[in-house]
Amino acid sequence: MKFGVIVFPGSNCDLDAYHLVRDVLNERVEYVGYDRRLLGYYDVLILPGGFSYGDYLRSGAIAARTPVMEAVADFADRGGLVLGICNGFQALTEAGLLPGALCRNGSLQFRCRQVYVRVDNNSLPFTTLAAEGEVLRMPVAHGDGSYYAPPELLQELDRNGQVVFRYADQDGRTNTEANPNGSIDNIAGVSNRSGNVIGLMPHPERAGEIALGSEDGLVIFKSLIGHFQNREVVEDV
């Protein structure tokens, strides 16, 4: 299978996603420039973290209007799997590919630290290898990560299982202390209605090796790899 990592001007976690896929997971991966209107063949597209266009208007707002995002939207429409991390999540909400919005952290400060997130939907191709309610340790590093959605939308997200990750303590309890940015309902990551596009503020690509403090983030990438391995078996039959 093959991953594509989208590179916007100002992306800076593109390298980290690329290395994790290539060096830790030994899968194929390519960078995809922001000015591309046509994509080659990819199984999964990753929108990495960073400060696309300096986040000068709103985080991810300008990235959402680059040529490559039209191709990403087409890819998603056809059921392609899209993973937005941090700034990539912000760009996906700005592009309307994911519901809700990401606002300034409650502390009004950039926050870099390890957090715990609970997997609240483990039936997506991104999470199948995680147990329901499994708690993952991975870092956050952002200034605009406070997730917001109006009450009706929140109910809808809940009903549809679109809340994929919530900030929680080590034992999986959601509470204020566990929430690094003031996100509503401790929401750390959501999916679109059909479950093929997800975004999350924490960085699973920074939690792929024990030497870096955690390898809990691997479950997301391994779920994706497993998803395609299974599919290939089915297709072979």
């Binding site: 976690c13 980290d16 973290g49 950039f110 870099c112 630290r113 920074r206 792929g208 030497a211 870096l212």
Partner: peptide, 14 residues
């Protein structure tokens, strides 16, 4: 102080 700095980007910080 340092929680306001991204000290992990580039995933080389041991």
């Amino acid at each position: 102080v340092w929680q306001q700095y991204d000290y992990m980007v580039r995933t080389c910080t041991l």
